[in-house]
């Protein structure tokens, strides 16, 4: 009689917790006969020991799912991330520079890395090199001689003494007129020497 009464409790539990029992994890867990028996036992006869048994069985089952899922996704994404990282490093620090970029091309990374300047401005007038309109106006106001010296020094990169040799002047004279030209440009642009250094 008592046993019937207890199993009524179990039936009631099933009746009341339909949604819970439909949970895929629980469903899968209880699909094993032994686990189902454990649940029945712990409801019909709710002693600490029975509950603990059920808890243990469930923990083992639940752990399998959680742990496997966790490891699987971690491994999957970690593999992809590591591969990405290595590829990025290889891209940033290539080991070989002279292998062809594509299989059947004769271009290599080395050829592409070196900077080729195709366009070169060729003019012996310094005014053609200036892009800033204010500086352009200032340089325009200089004497042709000063402009020529500025061209030789700053565009061609000659030293003052080289310029002097070319123009048949002393290095000091070149330096002086160059400095004078710069001073005039600064004056036109309203820039003091200190500001210039800054």
């Amino acid at each position: 009689m008592e046993k019937n009464n207890d199993c009524y409790k179990f039936r009631k539990f099933i009746e009341e917790n339909k949604a819970f029992l439909n949970n895929p994890i629980i469903k899968d867990f209880l699909s094993k006969k032994a686990n189902y028996q454990l649940l029945k036992q712990s409801i019909c006869d709710p002693t600490c020991q029975n509950k603990e048994q059920l808890d243990q069985a469930f923990r083992g089952f639940y752990f399998n799912i959680r742990f496997t899922a966790y490891i699987s996704s971690t491994l999957y994404f970690h593999a992809i991330n590591l591969d990405k990282k290595i590829r990025k490093l290889n891209y940033q620090f290539p080991i070989m520079l002279d292998q062809p970029v594509k299989e059947d091309s004769d271009m290599s990374l080395k050829d592409m890395t070196i900077y080729h300047e195709d366009f070169e401005l060729k003019s012996d007038n310094i005014l053609d090199y200036i892009t800033d309109s204010k500086i352009y106006e200032a340089v325009k106001r200089l004497t042709p001689n000063q402009r020529h010296i500025l061209y030789l020094v700053y565009i061609k990169g000659w030293t003052d003494s080289e310029v002097g040799k070319h123009l048949k002047k002393s290095q000091q004279a070149v330096s002086k007129s160059r400095n004078k030209a710069l001073k005039r440009i600064r004056g036109d642009l309203n820039i003091t020497l200190e500001k210039c250094i800054l």
Partner: peptide, 17 residues
């Protein structure tokens, strides 16, 4: 998981994993 990765890197990545 290694199938997702480049062939040359596999041994290294396997160890890392």
């Amino acid at each position: 998981s290694l199938q997702q990765t480049k062939f040359q890197n596999r041994v290294d990545i396997e160890q890392e994993l």
